[in-house]
Amino acid sequence: MNVFRLSGDVSHLLAILILLMKIWKTRSCAGISGKSQILFALVYTTRYLDLFTSFISPYNTAMKVFFIASSYATIYLIYLKFKATYDRNHDTFRMEFLVLPVLVLAFVVNHDFTPLEILWTFSIYLESVAILPQLFMVSKTGQAETITSHYLFALGMYRALYIVNWVYRYYFEGFYDLIAIIAGVVQTVLYCDFFYLYVTKVLKGKQLTLPA
């Protein structure tokens, strides 16, 4: 464990807490893409199957349980509890356009052709594009609530910090995992446009609006 990975995990945890707070406090999931949340639940479910087979540390297990539980709780809030506030008309990204290519890629490019490893690879690839429905929805509505932009910033920073962690582990532990690194870079690049808007607008107290 290093400070970059720890701060990445904290940023990830923060993002999830911000999202849950936003939905719970405002009792609304307006502006939130339910499809991205479904994809995240799929990411955690397929990645953390080793929850029962390999124990790394209490921290690792606790975080995995939290990520899985919170992703399903968010889906419950969006599609059941506050479904009247779910903006279905703007959450129109076709998930199958993400899941199918990623599934094929996981079978073609992986470290080990075993079920657990292919599911892990599928999860890594899927996570890199899972935010697209949410970013697509923000571009479609042309704006995002400030709290939602904080959620996206924290979520984007988590994998950006993981990239620094991978550089650190390469130089100090001789460890690297190209699948995770390439997917992580793609994932972070997808946030760049949003990061620019977040820094130039939200941090100056303005509303996050996209040029329609």
Partner: peptide, 10 residues
Amino acid sequence: WSKRNMHDEL
């Protein structure tokens, strides 16, 4: 598991 596949990260 080879070192690379430790998957010790979240």
